[in-house]
Computed example of a mutant assay.
Amino acid sequence: MKPHFIVTLVPGDGIGPEIASALVKVFQAASVPITWDPYNSPTDDRSTLKAIVESARKHRLMIKGPLATPIAEGPRSINVTLRSALGLYANVRPCKSFAGVESRWDGVELLIVRENTEGAYTGIEHDRGQGKVEAVKIVTAAASMRIAEYAFRAASHRPRRTLAVAHKANIMKKADGLFLQCCREVARKYPAVSYREILVDNCCLQLVLDPQQFDVLLFQNLYGDIVSDLCAGLIGGLGLAPSANIGAECAMFEAVHGSAPDIAGQGIANPAALILSGVLLLRHVNLHREANRIEQAVRSVIGHREATTGDLGGNGTTTSFTNAVIEALHEPAKESLLPSLAVSESPW
């Protein structure tokens, strides 16, 4: 008998409820064995955040739309808070080219692995007065070894078996130096994986010049946040970029684009990134047949372009895109395209 899963669902802010509705409709049409445990956005009501964390811990699975984050003011980012509270140490973002999407490069197939719990992205800052602010970058051997192990394990399951770690150890000799030491130690356990080190600024240059030279890319937290968006640009933008956050006891899947309040409620938002994040969730729990059907349907709709939304050069709406994906579910399933996350610490 096929297992049934309960998933915490947080539609989010702005366009979030619209694209979350699309996800739910597609999963229902594909007969995915999931029951949703939905919650309103915690952006304006932080008391909801505790309930969301408790639900995610209980069900061990969560998917969410975009959550608004104030710039240069306000409380700590809810996204960062969730990752910390749930122990989601690995942010994993596959970037694979889409037929029908104009891009400078074809055949891009990258897997971005980002340490998710420490570094400069945690938002630990101190006002020292007199116009002076201090931001703290924490790097530990334990977290660095853990994410390096995840990345090498992922690389060992991919055909090319290559991994590059990006760093700035020429300047941050202790912090990034420790991260590199841990990566080198783990690399010795994976002799079948080709390993290289590259300065993060040169990595950005090389991605723009020739992204096909890379396979798995490993970053510390802040570097990964920035460069993963660059990689999304190589395949058509954040509207096509799924994301997973993996921990030992829980996993959270999300669209990483913004809440787009300027188009909220207009019915023109692209739901592809959230639907594809749902595909990663299905692979995480070994529902590969359903994942293959949905991913193929999304790629088919994008490839034919008639129903795509404005950000992809089409005239479609959220509803027309969703309906087209549901119709495409009837096409014969092919092999998996997005990577399986079975290398994670999934309990399934």
Rank of each mutant, 00 (worst) to 15 (best):
V325H: 15
P159A: 06
C203R: 00
R188P: 07
A141D: 00
K64W: 11
G123T: 10
A269N: 09
I275P: 02
T48H: 02
S228Y: 13
C183M: 09
D262Y: 05
I71A: 09
A187H: 00
Q213A: 04
C231Y: 06
E54P: 05
I63T: 08
L274N: 07
R46W: 04
L209Q: 02
A141K: 08
P242D: 02
N292S: 03
S320A: 15
I52M: 02
K64S: 13
E254K: 14
I124K: 06
W105A: 12
S77L: 11
V26K: 15
S277Y: 14
T318L: 07
V301K: 01
A143N: 08
D127F: 15
G74D: 09
L199S: 14
E109L: 06
V227G: 08
E331Q: 01
Y89P: 02
G316A: 09
E118Q: 12
G224K: 13
A260K: 12
L312T: 01
S320E: 10
S194I: 00
E306P: 03
G316E: 01
I138A: 12
I112G: 04
L240H: 13
E54V: 09
R104W: 00
T309F: 06
G131W: 09
L61F: 07
L230Y: 10
V24M: 11
P94A: 14
V139E: 11
S31F: 08
A273N: 11
P38M: 01
E290Y: 09
Q130P: 05
N79R: 12
V208F: 07
D229R: 12
T317R: 09
N315D: 07
Q296F: 03
P94N: 10
M1Q: 04
R146Y: 08
D225R: 08
L287I: 03
Y39A: 13
P159D: 02
F214Y: 05
H126S: 13
G310R: 03
F179W: 04
V227K: 14
V193I: 03
V133Q: 15
L23E: 04
G177F: 09
